[in-house]
Design a protein around this nucleic acid. Structure first.
Lengths: 144, 144
DNA sequence: CAATTATTGCAATACAGTTGCAAATAACAC
DNA sequence: GTGTTATTTGCAACTGTATTGCAATAATTG
């Protein structure tokens, strides 16, 4: 993606086309996987930009709809007893993105197909599955 | 679960039965969902114990196999372009727990059944799914 | 009860994320 | 091009969770 097209894209989104912002957008657009702020700062460490600037640019790009921002999980560890009935086998967990409550889904079955780059893990079932969204209670509160 | 049974359980695991440790184990055993260190500290805030003590007890219990510790996700946000082909629709992500690499699984299909407390979200498909495990590359490195 | 060894409290550190504020710079009108 | 204005940037500071060192304390064992 050339520089003038990046500039044009940013202007169309009502954002100024600064060097840092263009670098960030180019990087994210060319990436084959979602990148973290840390990875981006590392990739652009030879540039003259501050970490915070890159961070704020990512947030700006998100607000403008040019990038999607997801936190796949939450920044805390969870502990559960291994003695519990449903704790015997691994099971998916549902995490409510509104209230933060976690629900075990011991009876949930899921079928995964079409994996690329992680066939072995999925084939063997040595995986941890997390589903994230609004729980029924929080949906109710929002009248959904 | 009474106190002497907790004591017995801890001793069987080669751990001393301190008041703090028994309180933590009891709490985790009685909980219906995985608890975070923060939640546990909050629940036991009337006790005389330091946060760090509760934290170390959780780690001790984990090492002894009495509790399972999982971080459903990672403590970082990820950014991806909304302009990418496969970015148009939501798709599961695979996160390698060894190398931290993330893989998009745009072609993966999954069927969820038996949801409790999160039926609406799953029915509507307004969910984010993360699968976690060792990627093929990391499995290869370990000779699996 | 005394000796030994594990555990605890406190303080400090690490790291990602986030924000305030003054200085620098892009956009725009001329 | 030059000047004006609003946005953006760098720096420093602060939040929250996780983690560790070390000296004081408590649980075990005999």
């Amino acid at each position: 993606m050339n520089s003038s097209l990046l500039r044009q894209t940013l202007h169309a989104a009502n954002l100024r086309a600064t060097a840092a912002r263009m670098a960030v957008l180019e990087l994210v657009r060319n990436a084959s996987t979602p990148l973290s702020h840390g990875e981006i700062a590392e990739l652009l460490r030879d540039g003259p930009w501050n970490r915070t600037t890159l961070y704020r640019n990512l947030i700006d790009l998100e607000k403008a709809g040019l990038v999607r921002r997801t936190q796949l999980g939450e920044p805390v560890w969870r502990f559960e007893s291994t003695a519990k009935e449903h704790g015997v086998r691994s099971h998916p967990h549902f995490l409510c993105s509104a209230c933060g409550k976690m629900v075990c889904l011991p009876e949930m079955t899921l079928r995964l197909e079409g994996a690329r780059g992680c066939r072995k893990a999925i084939g063997q079932g040595n995986i941890e599955v997390q589903v994230r969204g609004l729980c029924d209670a929080c949906m109710g509160k929002r009248g959904i």
